[in-house]
């Protein structure tokens, strides 16, 4: 076990006013230069991932911030990795990312998009993975996911709405609670 010399700064909720600092254009203020938005630019097959985060009563989170981080279409991370940020819609709670289909960054394993969720009531951001339905069998064999029950693993697989268009809903609680990772 690695013990650092310093202890990490604890996390606190992003709260309901996260837009001010992370996406001022979403509340009618001028955007900041270079601030990440919901679209990642890179070569490759363009895809859309959209969805909603639901609370334990089935209500959409309308104040969430979501971020994705993924390999590029060739599976490269680091400087070639792709990042995007989306604020849930104030009325519907929908989020929508436009990106490219990631290549696998782990040899022989299915590709995924890492998704972080920040919101009021979430003290430490939640980390989950978006997998693609075309790779369902490889997802089942992924050494990181093998220990999960099949129904739990299913929460990590997006639904195809149309070619290159996926839906990935997140359930914070309930029978189909999404699997969240401790990385």
């Amino acid at each position: 076990m690695m013990i650092g010399k310093l202890q990490e700064t604890p996390s606190q909720t992003a709260g309901p006013y996260v837009h001010i600092g992370t996406a001022p254009q979403s509340i009618g203020r001028p955007p900041l230069t270079g601030q990440p938005g919901p679209r990642a630019e890179a070569e490759g097959e363009r895809i859309i991932i959209e969805g909603t985060v639901f609370d334990g009563a089935g209500a959409p989170l309308r104040d969430a911030m979501l971020e994705i981080w993924q390999a590029d279409s060739a599976g490269r991370v680091g400087a070639e990795g792709l990042f995007a940020r989306c604020l849930a819609d104030f009325d519907t709670g929908r989020y929508r990312f436009e990106t490219v289909r990631p290549g696998p960054h782990r040899e022989g394993q299915p590709a995924h998009v890492a998704l972080l969720i920040f919101a009021r009531g979430i003290n430490l951001h939640l980390h989950t993975r978006i997998h693609f339905p075309e790779e369902r069998e490889r997802v089942a064999a992924d050494p990181d996911l093998r220990r999960l029950e099949p129904e739990a693993r299913e929460t990590l697989i997006a639904t195809q709405e149309a070619a290159g268009h996926y839906r990935f809903d997140v359930h914070l609680q309930g029978a189909n609670e999404t699997v969240f990772f401790d990385i």
Binding site: W69, G78, G81, I122, V179, D182, I183
Partner: peptide, 27 residues
């Protein structure tokens, strides 16, 4: 903190080792 009641996941987090993806980040 009332907002956590319906928003906190109730199942334990699934621990995995970090991969090259999580060990790098956007610049």
């Amino acid at each position: 903190y009332k907002s956590t009641v319906l928003r906190a996941p109730l199942r334990p987090l699934h621990a995995v080792e970090q991969s090259a993806l999580e060990r790098s980040g956007p610049a």
